[in-house]
Simulated assay, not measured.
Amino acid sequence: MSEAATPRRIWLCADDYGLSPGVNRAIRDLIERSRLNATSVMVVGPATGRDEIGKLRDSVANSPRCAIGLHVTLTAPFRPLTMHFRPADGGMFLPFAKLLRAGLLWRLDPEIIQAELMVQLATFGEMFGRAPDFVDGHQHAQLFPGVREAFLAAVKAAAPGAWVRQGGRHQNLAWRLGSPKAVVLDILSAQFRRRAAQAGIAFNPGFAGAYDFTGRPDFGDLMRQFLDGLPEGGLIMCHPGFVDDTLESLDPLTTQREHEHAFIGGEEFPRLLAANKVTLG
């Protein structure tokens, strides 16, 4: 096979394991059918009991290509694992917009954040008996100013062999796609990549998967765009799930999760990967 025809190996990572039983079940289903090769676990989520973690461990044991990471969580409606965490809102983390604003205004205390992240990393270790393969962040909080420094320091200390997720597209494709969310991630990721490289921490060379969930777009069309130009080792995030009461009480992204699960688990997805010379390696 010529070099030009060699399939690109990418990561397809399902975020939010632990958010709800329905999300967990959808992720395990796709792992067991080799339609995912990574998932990140939200250790502060309500569906991270021994049974749910045991089922994930079993699914991954039968799918050795699948990596398990920590989905660092620092935004509401979830609660910190450390006492006296600040800033907080009614005992919960700040909402996404308030956390981002505090970061941009340099009003976050990296030491307090790092302490929380060390506990989340330790909790992952207790659940799985090892450090995570990679570390990413719920709602991309790991990229925020004031968070990224603490995030990288915690990973370096507690999971030095892990790689981390950056959210920049390869060759600035976010600008061509015209997605405001992707453009913001590109901007925030530039500094994150520089700091990760300085710390000697590996990261994914390209990223895709950001889109406006509220518009309920066709996920198959989006996946075609995500694959365009994604380099070897690049990462596509996804959010498959089945809607249940727990999910509806915690997250606005509901029925779109079922659309993502249906496409990734359907017959068209493997053909799309093959047509783009991509494999989940």
Rank of each mutant, 00 (worst) to 15 (best):
M1W: 08
S2V: 02
T6S: 11
Y17W: 09
Y17S: 02
I27M: 02
L30E: 10
I31N: 01
E32K: 03
R33P: 03
R33I: 01
R33M: 06
A38S: 14
S40A: 15
V43S: 05
V44N: 05
P46C: 03
R50D: 10
S59F: 01
P64Q: 02
R65C: 06
R65V: 06
C66Y: 02
A67V: 06
I68H: 00
L70K: 03
V72L: 15
L74W: 04
A76L: 09
F78S: 03
H84F: 12
F85S: 03
A88S: 15
A88R: 10
G90D: 05
M92Y: 09
M92C: 12
F93S: 02
P95A: 03
F96M: 11
A97I: 03
K98C: 06
A102G: 05
D109V: 00
P110D: 09
I112A: 08
Q114D: 12
A115H: 13
E116I: 08
E116L: 09
L117F: 10
L117H: 08
L117Y: 07
Q120H: 14
A122V: 01
A122M: 06
E126Y: 03
G129V: 05
G129D: 08
R130M: 10
F134N: 12
Q139G: 04
A141F: 05
G146L: 02
E149H: 12
A150R: 02
L152N: 10
L152Y: 11
L152E: 12
A154G: 14
V155Y: 13
V155W: 12
K156A: 15
A157E: 15
A159M: 15
P160N: 15
A162M: 14
W163D: 12
W163V: 09
Q166E: 15
G168A: 15
H170I: 05
A174M: 04
A174F: 01
K181T: 09
A182I: 02
A182T: 00
V183W: 13
V184H: 00
V184P: 03
D186T: 06
I187G: 07
S189Y: 04
Q191C: 12
F192N: 05
R193A: 14
R193C: 13
R194W: 09
R195F: 10
A196L: 12
A197M: 13
Q198S: 09
A199S: 10
I201S: 11
A202F: 10
P205A: 06
P205M: 06
A208Y: 02
A210K: 04
T214C: 08
P217Y: 06
L222E: 07
Q225W: 04
P231L: 07
G234L: 07
G234S: 09
L235M: 15
D244L: 06
E248R: 15
E248V: 14
D251M: 08
E258A: 11
E258T: 11
H261I: 00
F263N: 09
G265R: 08
G265T: 12
E267M: 01
E268F: 10
E268S: 14
F269K: 04
L272D: 01
A274Y: 04
N276K: 15
G281D: 11
